[in-house]
């Protein structure tokens, strides 16, 4: 039934565009959760650095899409640690989590922060007691880390990286930006 709801909203938006009437779903992303039965709207805007429609676009014609979708960023242990290469925006982080079957979500904040808010499905391993060896995390899984603003989680990520974990992601801007971009109902503190 989920596709029915979504397909009908899509049809409505097509018809509104043709009629040039109403407020189109432009610059707004509508998220529907059938299990919670709620809709959320997040505003989305042009990325000035977009490879296609940005100021200095690098994609000027159609590319090889099979290759583009197969190429995963690989992190080798020999490389210099570059924190930016692990960062995902809240949108990218959310999508990656949903589509990645080996995803493990780790919250590295402290217990009292966890009690204020946390992302569904996360596991709490506070940085104060963070140790890759005793974490029980598998090197086979993709580890998604977040904290409040993204600083502590990148420290934890670096520890994991040094310990030989390769598939690591950090939520840019932390749960604070997540609350702004993804989950407006989440409290910010």
């Amino acid at each position: 039934m989920l596709p029915g709801v979504v397909g009908l909203i899509q049809a409505t938006e097509v018809i509104k565009l043709i009629l040039d009437n109403g407020v189109p779903l432009k610059g707004r992303l509508l998220l529907y959760d059938a299990m919670k039965m709620n809709f959320k709207e997040v505003s989305v805007s042009k990325d000035p650095e977009c490879a296609l429609c940005g100021i200095s676009a690098t994609i000027t014609e159609l590319i090889d899409y099979t290759k583009f979708c197969d190429a995963k960023p690989v992190t080798s242990a020999q490389e210099e640690f570059n924190s930016e290469s692990f960062e995902l925006s809240p949108f990218e982080f959310k999508t990656a989590l949903e589509y990645d079957p080996t995803a493990v979500l780790i919250d590295v904040r402290e217990q009292y922060e966890w009690e204020i808010c946390h992302i569904d499905g996360a596991r709490l391993i506070p940085t104060s007691s963070f140790d890759p060896k005793s974490s029980g995390l598998s090197k086979e899984s993709s580890i998604y880390l977040y904290c409040y603003k993204g600083q502590r989680s990148i420290m934890a990520l670096k520890e994991l990286w040094k310990a030989g974990y390769t598939n690591l992601k950090n939520l840019k801007g932390g749960i604070d930006l997540w609350a702004e971009d993804i989950d407006p109902d989440m409290p910010q503190y």
Partner: peptide, 24 residues
């Protein structure tokens, strides 16, 4: 989960790549 939006970069809005620069 479902997601719906209109991409119309020609009228100033974002495109799919603005939201997802890389595939998951």
């Amino acid at each position: 989960h479902g997601q719906i939006t209109i991409f119309d970069p020609d009228s100033g809005g974002p495109c799919y790549r603005c939201l997802y620069s890389e595939p998951p």
